[in-house]
Design a protein around this nucleic acid. Structure first.
Lengths: 183, 183
DNA sequence: CAGCTAAGCGGACACGTGTCCACTTTATCG
DNA sequence: CGATAAAGTGGACACGTGTCCGCTTAGCTG
């Protein structure tokens, strides 16, 4: 972590790539890696060196959004019972996914890589918080974990914009009902 | 449907492509369209003319499997109440998805195209049968449709083989619980 | 300050997908 | 049977992703 050898220019390149990525994401609908590289004035090799996959890049670009989402969790848990709190939080997640479709897909994919590495990542951790609270209370079935929920939430990725309003919210409720522990 | 003009050789090409596709799917893990074209002795253009997307091709290759799945539905509905019948059918679907992962993804994607075209396709129709029976009985919530269920089922596509046994069945139950109508 | 070493660079390349269009073939019709 | 129109063909091409490797250059070392 502490200052690997040649950080000066490498870090600058990394920053430039990120900057370029933000611009491209903001302006264009399509996010093409080589375009980002060109705009940042670096070769693809450099881009891929800093961000091994497209998901890694997008995840970094939107790290702040994820942080905001994560930060909202404790407040919800303090004010509501676990299940309603989770419902509200997922509403926020879904809202976000609606606006930033492509990004959400990327984040989800990245998240999936985290899971392979036996790390839940910030989103997974947050989900676990809700789930644990619900399990302790006895309202959430004890046999599921954050990974399961993420799997189910994946539908948000595939939902066409046109179908969004009609289905997203309702399906969230279906999932929440499924998570409920029927004593 | 009845004999468009130049069917003779075109149909033969189509058959050869299908034949080649079956061989490739059976032998290789990777399914590359251009390999199929080469093996069939046709150009890519011809392949894409007959099957506009990779899903269309795969769907045709596995049409029989889908038919089998669809054919199993009436029997289940005759012997069981709607919800348990659906549970068993989804078990079969999941079982199939486990063995033929790539295929399932392709079928799902194709199915999604059907839905865009306002046609449910055979799988969608079958699901609707179960859902309608359950709604009539009052055990399935009335506000969901086949499309919703397919959306939720999408997790099967993303599930890693290693995780399969641990999660697939359980998540099926979570979904079924979510579909249940709590009066 | 000069020389060294490896971290870092960047673009050429390989690969798969899907599109396009000039050419070929075949069914029909006079 | 020969002309014709259009259905069909096939491969070249454009594009995006991701990899690879020889060259550059920053930062240490004496």
């Amino acid at each position: 972590m502490n200052a690997p050898r040649r950080r000066a220019d490498a870090a600058e390149n990394r920053a430039r790539i990120l900057q370029a990525a933000r611009e491209v994401v903001a302006n264009a609908e399509e996010v093409r890696l080589n375009e980002i590289a060109k705009r940042a004035g670096v070769g693809q090799g450099t881009l891929y060196r800093h961000f091994p996959t497209r998901e890694a890049l997008l995840a970094e670009v939107y790290r702040k959004d994820v942080d905001d989402l994560v930060a909202a969790a404790p407040g919800l848990l303090a004010e509501h019972a676990p299940l309603p709190a989770l419902a509200r939080w997922l509403d926020r997640v879904a809202e976000y996914a609606k606006v930033k479709r492509g990004v959400f897909a990327a984040v989800e994919a990245g998240l999936w890589q985290d899971l392979s590495a036996h790390s839940l990542g910030p989103i997974g951790e947050t989900l676990s918080t809700f789930l644990d609270a619900g399990k302790a209370e006895g309202t959430i079935r004890p046999d599921i974990d954050a990974c399961d929920v993420i799997l189910l939430l994946g539908y948000l990725t595939r939902l066409e914009p046109a179908e969004w309003d009609a289905r997203a919210h309702r399906l969230l409720h279906v999932i929440l009902d499924g998570l409920r522990h029927h004593a």
